[in-house]
Amino acid sequence: MRREISPALVHPFMHCVMEAPFPAPGRTITVKSFLPGSGNEVLTLCRPVDSRLEHVDFESLLQCLSVTRLLQVFASLLLERRVIFIADKLSVLSRCAHSALALLYPFTWQHTFVPVLPASMLDICCSPTPFVMGALSPSLPEVLDMPIEEVSHFEGLGDEDCILPRKLQAALQEILDNREEILEQNTRDRNGDLSTLVSEAFVWFFVELVGHYSLYMSDTGPGGTRELQRDAFRKSHPSRGVRQFLQLFMDTQMFAGFIHDRELRKGGVKGLFEMRAAEYLDSYPEPEPSGVNKFLKGLGNKMKFLQKK
């Protein structure tokens, strides 16, 4: 195709693309082009709302793990525990491990991540530091015989169901359990995408959890840098369960990295989380429905928002 179009036509098109402002996630830009035989055309280019999901396979993750088990893994990751994925196939192992970490957005896993661990390196599982690793099923007996403490594999530690704030966990459970019905409804509205549904659900979990952080960022750090007022931020949340969870979560490297990035950031492109947090703060702290109903209402509004794009 490149050889069929004259550079004299390509260069103006590329210049027009380069001159157009970089769109925010989910927004579009229009670019004019000229093609022989077609005349002038206007192309509409849309930036994905969440480009992280282009290579993430939530379907495989939900096929391999029950919703209850998935939320247990999610809770373990949030507290930066050691997690080992076991699967029969390399492809499944890699897809599930990467998809599980994608659920942490806008936070980033800060520790060791080996999606497929060779059998000759299984002793790495004895590391005392947090990790996410994957091993093939034939290696499971050897893994179970290792002196590994506090690791979440098939059995877990037993407290995974009690880690997340109860109402937010119930909301995630309800959305994931009813995903087929939700997707069927949204398919009729041309928005039946599993990745979008799962992404929005977990993003709104974090919005409900820490979406108000920007209200407690002040210019009191060294050299006038922004700094989170940690105690005020945690105590401001109206939910006791969330406050208790934040007391643990705020000590993780994930939370430290998230806040450090925001302390250094001055404006810039906003991602999906920042967009949703801004929408959340538009009504903060006005009284709203609480718990599952509030969470589902927020997700429903976001799905409708996506349908309009």
Rank of each mutant, 00 (worst) to 15 (best):
R81G: 14
A97S: 12
I86S: 03
A102P: 01
R95S: 14
T112R: 13
T112W: 10
S91P: 00
V83W: 10
H111Y: 13
H98W: 09
W109L: 06
R82A: 10
V116H: 12
A87G: 09
H98P: 00
V92D: 13
A119Y: 12
H111W: 15
T112H: 11
F107M: 04
R95E: 11
H98N: 10
K89T: 15
L93P: 02
A97W: 01
Y105R: 09
A102Y: 00
T112P: 00
D88Q: 13
P115V: 08
L93E: 01
F107I: 01
L103H: 05
S91K: 14
H98M: 05
A100F: 03
C96E: 11
T112Q: 13
S94W: 08
S94M: 10
A119Q: 14
A119M: 11
P106T: 08
S99G: 04
T108K: 09
Y105M: 02
S91G: 07
L103S: 03
I86K: 02
T108Q: 09
D88H: 14
V114P: 01
H98C: 06
S91D: 15
A87S: 13
Q110H: 08
A102R: 02
S91I: 14
W109H: 04
R95G: 02
H111V: 07
F85A: 04
D88K: 13
H98A: 08
A87K: 07
L101C: 01
K89Q: 15
L117F: 08
L117R: 05
D88N: 12
L93G: 02
A100E: 01
V114G: 01
L90A: 11
F107V: 01
T108G: 00
A97R: 02
V116K: 10
V116M: 12
S120K: 11
L90Y: 14
S94L: 07
A102D: 01
S94C: 09
L90D: 14
S120E: 12
R95P: 00
V83N: 03
R81P: 02
H111D: 10
L117I: 08
I84C: 15
F113L: 05
S120G: 06
R95Y: 05
Y105T: 11
R82F: 12
W109V: 04
D88V: 09
S91M: 13
C96K: 08
V116G: 02
L90E: 15
C96A: 07
A100M: 08
R82E: 13
K89V: 10
V114R: 05
A102I: 01
R81V: 05
V92P: 00
S99Q: 04
S99K: 04
R81Y: 10
V92Q: 14
L90I: 13
P106C: 09
P118T: 06
